[in-house]
Design a protein around this nucleic acid. Structure first.
Lengths: 217, 217
DNA sequence: CCTCATAAGTGACCGGGAGTCATTTTTCAA
DNA sequence: TTGAAAAATGACTCCCGGTCACTTATGAGG
């Protein structure tokens, strides 16, 4: 009994640190966040952070883990709806977009994770495994929607759903990145000349994708 | 006369520093590169680097500028060929892929630049302007190929070419990112079960894109 | 209610990297 | 040849991530 109480307290402290890190990043930006300030925000000594996380990277990974968990929750609901494959795919895309827009810090943490992955500088741990699991889960939902679409005839059966899923996932990420950027640029120079917002851009992309994979006869 | 000589020497030194930085990154990885080691590689004192660049970020930006310049050179040649719009688009994609594969350091520097852009932490300078110019130039080639395609009837005229260009550009980047990653993972665990290489993935993407935008009647 | 072993917490300290600047070395026009 | 300006330098500062010897809190057993 005592033991579980201890562990619950530990878990709460851990979450507190993650909360504080998110807050500091939100306030100062991702690159400007320091361990000292995260500790101060959490009302803890710097050394204490290292009782809960191996290093700074692990805190960021933990943020990503939390974020991707929340995102997957959203996606999970969509996949259960009784709709055609292509409609589900559409909604998945929009849910992703909404999530990113609402949680920029999670977006940054995800980019950070992807970057570590790309540069192959991630020490295996339960955290990295969890992050990988979540990423794969998200992929699963896309692949599932494609399979449903092939089944119900709304998506043409000309490519391996797994590969196609990976492509759609990564391409969407690219577009959302760009949309995010151009959103920033636009707000910076407030040139209302051309509407180049998130929704517009991703909307066109989904449109192209639709005609690219839909079954038309 | 004297003056131009000085300036030429300066220009050569500058290029030397960029060369050295590329070499150090290639050897040690992007994150592990230090100003000290770049200086040593260039046979210069550390302080000297700061006569040619304001800071480390500017060196990375200069690498990106060089890289995007080289890439644009490739793209420029393609756009001049007398082919259908959709064929040109296809070749642009493949040229990009080849370039990335051949010049991973330029790819890293480009990612770095994009990241700074995304996080809005770039101090305006001639360098950032040059980077932006190059990025826009690449975009131009894609847009041009789309316009040619709409003209010659190989691409359907249902979207604004500029928006569509931005989407294709960013989506391609996303796919290449992912392909790059999965390439790394594959080589790490050499599981030859599924071919998930660059060419395969981007090939499917281009295929989907083709059917998504091609004019079929 | 005390005792003390162990867990939790801490911040001074360390190594190392980015960026600075007082000083030295090089260049070249007069 | 010379000396003023330009170029080069590396010891130094500052700051950050991470460590560790020490302090404080906890709670089971007497």
């Amino acid at each position: 009994m005592r033991k579980t109480k201890r562990e619950r307290k530990k878990e709460i402290r851990r979450e507190l640190i993650i909360d504080s890190a998110v807050e500091v990043i939100r306030r100062n930006g991702f690159e400007q966040a320091t361990m000292n300030e995260i500790a101060r925000e959490a009302d803890l000594g710097k050394g204490t952070l290292y009782l809960y996380f191996r290093n700074k990277a692990d805190i960021y990974l933990a943020i990503n883990e939390r974020g991707s968990g929340l995102l997957n929750q959203q996606l999970r609901e969509i996949i259960l709806q009784n709709k055609s494959g292509i409609e589900i795919l559409d909604e998945l895309g929009n849910a992703y977009l909404r999530f990113i827009k609402k949680n920029p810090v999670f977006f940054m943490a995800a980019s950070y994770y992807e970057n570590l992955l790309k540069n192959n500088i991630l020490t295996e741990s339960s955290l990295t495994k969890e992050c990988e699991k979540h990423a794969k889960e998200a992929m699963t939902y896309i692949v599932r929607s494609l399979q449903i679409g092939i089944q119900d005839g709304s998506i043409r059966n000309s490519h391996d759903p797994y590969k196609l899923g990976l492509i759609i996932w990564s391409a969407s990420r690219g577009v959302v990145h760009a949309a995010h950027q151009s959103e920033i640029l636009k707000s910076a120079e407030h040139s209302g000349s051309e509407e180049m917002d998130y929704a517009s851009l991703l909307g066109i992309f989904i449109d192209v994708l639709r005609s690219g994979i839909k079954n038309d006869q």
